[in-house]
Design a binder for these strands. Structure first.
Ligand SMILES: [Mn+2]
Ligand SMILES: [Mn+2]
Ligand SMILES: [Zn+2]
Ligand SMILES: [Zn+2]
Lengths: 152, 152
DNA sequence: AAGTTAATTAATAATCATTATAGTATATTT
DNA sequence: AAATATACTATAATGATTATTAATTAACTT
């Protein structure tokens, strides 16, 4: 199977950054890793592990779930992703590291992003107040999404 | 087993409120429910389901884990508790409904509360900005706690 | 191009939190 | 005190995640 035939220039900025980070830390650049990362970036709905698996499998039919779990942990460790375990304990993955709020539907579990000046200012102020170093943050709000509200 | 022998006057304000709310909604007042709620109120460390189980079991040796789960869901539904699912997907329970931030140690998992004018203002502003009705919120910050930092 | 090392796959099995089931016990009402 | 509806307990089932192998494959180095 010839896998890494794409011209380097065809990679997105994000993918190039991933490649660079993998090389830097001595991890191998594999097509599965790139595809998994690209799929999460393309999917703005904070997909679950299984959703990612299903999607990327279309491109790589032999992809195993083990590889997906392993890759997601790796990408989380090198801080390209954040793992979210909000609703029912099922992991979802977040590629957006900028300060924002995740609005979570209590009915269907869908997550959408909410950004505002308010969030940014709040975090800036908070950093000043706290003496300890921030490793990460997660702000979430629970509600019923519009789609679910229409159904009742 | 004679269980509900305590004089009503020995109940705390919080417990009295729980009793009232249960009666109001047609749920039965059971010693397990009171004990579980009291234990969460007494424990300021956002205990896990199993921690609550272990603790309350000392008082009621026949207590089942199923009852703990069921009770916690009930108390969450009547809005006396909030379920937190932070890091590892394990549920923790939060009796404090006032706006605050949970500071979570990435090393030992301990959760401490943080309150400030900044947090309050942020939430007030957020409510104005959002059109949808808020069912709940959870703001968390990841860091390494002082205790763990000293150890290295 | 060949050698080395790490990654992927596959096939199970184990773990662990949570949920479902069904029989027994108990709180509340009469 | 008896009736009845709910709650409790014990046990089993579920389901996502992790662990363990070992064999194959592919990325990287020289
Ligand atoms: Mn998000
Ligand atoms: Mn708290
Ligand atoms: Zn929804
Ligand atoms: Zn700690």
């Amino acid at each position: 199977m010839i896998l890494l035939t794409r011209n380097i220039t065809s990679y997105s900025m994000d993918t190039k950054k991933l490649i660079e980070m993998l090389r830097e830390k001595g991890f191998k650049v594999t097509p599965q890793r790139l595809a998994i990362y690209e799929k999460i970036l393309a999917n703005k709905e904070h997909p679950t592990v299984d959703q990612i698996y299903q999607e990327v499998q279309k491109k790589f039919p032999t992809l195993s779930l083990t590889t997906v779990y392993h890759t997601l942990h790796l990408l989380t460790k090198i801080e390209l992703l954040q793992e979210l375990r909000c609703n029912n304990g099922v992991s979802r993955y977040e590629p957006d590291k900028t300060p924002h709020i995740n609005i979570i539907c209590q009915n269907c579990g869908a997550i959408s992003d909410y950004q505002s000046k308010n969030v940014e200012n709040f975090l800036l102020q908070l950093k000043k107040e706290l003496k300890t170093k921030l490793l990460g943050n997660h702000f979430e709000i629970q509600t019923i999404c519009e789609k679910c509200r229409k159904q009742g």
